[in-house]
Computed example of a mutant assay.
Amino acid sequence: MADYYDILGVSRSATQDEIKRAYRKKARTLHPDVAGPDKADEFKEVTGAYEVLSNEEKRRLYDMGGESAVRNGGGGAGGFGGSFHDIFDTFFGGSTAARGPVPRGRRGQDALVPVEIDLIDATFGIETELTIDTAIRCKTCNGTCSREGSEPTTCTACGGSGSVRKVTNSFLGQVMSTSSCGVCQGHGTVITDPCLDCAGEGRVRAQQTLQVKIPAGIEDGMRIRMPGRGEVGPAGGPQGDLFVEVHVKHHPEFTRQGDDLVCELEIPMTAAALGTTMTIESFDGPQNVEIEPGTSGGVSLRVRGKGVGRLHRSDRGDLVINIHVQTPTKLSSREKELLKELAEIRGETQPEGNLVSESSSVFSRFKDRFR
């Protein structure tokens, strides 16, 4: 009698996974349905070796005393004990155990819908209405799929089990396999009198209006998940989830930088020199902005707590105002006289530019760093 390890082509230290893989590889090529009846004895020999080596107790007995030890220890090498399901799975991809009927109702699909909001809505948050096209439970049959006064009938092909059995004759004897019933699709019942409104689906397409709460601080492209507000499943099954993708519209005056609102403010040259108080319209209403005397272009002023609301927090960012100083380009003769007079008073009748020394320039600092 050949050695079981040699029959399967594995070493004596092989793991259970290696033994299983080796058996499946050989069995697929030696099975009589594939290789013909001439390979039946060889297939039976491979199967007997696998039945012993795949069982830890039988393998231990075999390693100690060979085939006779296994036989005397309780079970011949040619039997199909605990490993029959592995053999069945290898060739039929199923199980000998019958499955129950599959529920007709299934979970519906998730839905994704876009919504556009203004920047002010992203700043403070908003609750808005959203109308979507979705699948809802059929009101006529309430998801039963059958016409009023009717109900699903038991499938005669499977007797309501949702599965059918098939017996196959082989050299090993009769082998029984179980598969889903093709008549009722595994549900165990058949819709003999379907609802006319939903055509036996248990759901219909319709428009639905929802209230969506968009929190303050939400950013462009973010999604809000609404559990159980998606499409109803077949046969009135549970709803999927709804995802609302938020898009924030462009604002003509304010831009967003993180949690800050940023705007540009142009002021006259005289206001920058003398200082003044200016009023701007913000999302919170009029805001007074103090311009200090001698303010130069490029300065940014910050109004605390007047920016965008921070997501899932109660505080807000800031309102940032970038100052730009207007330089007059068209002057009347009187304006020119006044500016000349000012220049004479300040000793600027022949203005001279001041060169910045290399030691203090930004360029020199970069050169020093690269050195």
Rank of each mutant, 00 (worst) to 15 (best):
F43T: 06
F43S: 09
E45V: 12
E45M: 14
V46M: 01
T47M: 11
T47F: 05
G48P: 10
G48A: 14
G48R: 12
A49T: 09
A49N: 08
Y50N: 04
Y50I: 01
Y50F: 15
Y50R: 05
E51K: 00
L53C: 04
L53W: 00
L53F: 00
L53A: 04
S54T: 05
S54F: 04
S54Y: 02
S54G: 15
N55W: 00
N55F: 10
N55C: 13
N55E: 11
E56A: 15
E57P: 01
E57V: 13
K58W: 09
K58V: 00
R59W: 02
R59Q: 08
R59A: 10
R59M: 01
R60F: 03
R60C: 01
L61Y: 07
L61I: 05
Y62E: 04
Y62N: 03
Y62L: 03
D63H: 03
D63T: 08
D63S: 11
D63W: 08
D63P: 11
M64Y: 08
M64R: 10
M64V: 11
G65H: 07
G66M: 11
G66D: 11
E67K: 14
E67R: 14
S68T: 12
A69M: 13
A69L: 13
A69I: 03
V70C: 01
V70G: 02
V70S: 00
V70F: 01
V70T: 06
R71C: 08
N72Y: 09
G73T: 02
G73P: 12
G74I: 07
G74V: 09
G74F: 03
G74L: 08
G75D: 04
G76A: 13
G76C: 09
G76F: 12
A77T: 11
G78W: 05
G79V: 03
G79Y: 01
F80K: 15
F80M: 11
G81C: 04
G82N: 06
G82A: 09
G82H: 00
G82S: 07
S83Y: 07
S83H: 08
S83W: 09
F84H: 09
F84V: 13
H85A: 12
